[in-house]
Design a protein around this nucleic acid. Structure first.
Lengths: 108, 108
DNA sequence: GCTTCATAAGTAGAGTGGCTACATGTTGCC
DNA sequence: GGCAACATGTAGCCACTCTACTTATGAAGC
């Protein structure tokens, strides 16, 4: 999977994995990896800046904690983030229908 | 639909519309608009550079012609382009399953 | 004749966001 | 002592889409 493909789709995916429960960055990486069947292996240089961006934008809120001597920054969805996630899901459906309307992926 | 969403997905879509028959730039724009149900209205500043890029890469071949006093540059798919298109369709299926695995868009 | 829209192709420059590569530190296993 | 996994982060690159602009013809409306 090419890198650019992710552009603009990563944000809702991050919001989606923290929706059911707050997670720290490393756990978010693992959740994305698991939920994508091992396909979505984000480099830290992508994830951490994305988290800060989402927090600055008000979609996530973070809190520091220490577990077993390791510092963690745990992110949870804000109400604005929940709205953004819902909008993102809707946009995905539109995007998908656009691409498939043009690509007709069945006709290989 | 946000602009970035298109990133990395535009190329296969362009290849897809010129697959059945060669088209010139303006006609490609219209074909994309039609096939996407009016959603994909590309600015010329996106399309024309993309076409040149795809030609430089060997996926498209172009030819000038004049129709009704208007100059047209008609693009057709090369065999490398056809391969690229097939690969692009496959990649789309992977990408789709990754996003939907993470997003679970049904659970709105 | 003049304006305006659709047709047709292009360039310049900006912005953004995911990437590579690097930096830092802990815990636990061999 | 050394390495893997855990955990967080920054700096800078680069590719692609965008806005805004330029050029030019044909047809319709007034």
């Amino acid at each position: 999977m090419k890198a650019d493909a992710l552009r603009g789709h990563l944000d809702p995916m991050i919001l989606a994995v923290v929706e059911p429960e707050p997670l720290h960055g490393y756990a978010i990486m693992e959740a994305l990896l698991a939920r994508s069947g091992g396909e979505l292996d984000l480099p830290t240089g992508t994830l951490y800046p994305a988290l800060r961006r989402l927090e600055r934008a008000g979609y996530l809120a973070s809190e520091w904690s220490t577990v077993g001597g390791r510092k963690r920054r745990t992110y949870q969805l804000t109400s604005a983030g929940a709205k953004m996630l819902a909008a993102g899901k809707q946009e995905w459906l539109t995007f998908r229908s656009v691409v498939e309307g043009v690509l007709r992926p069945g006709e290989a």
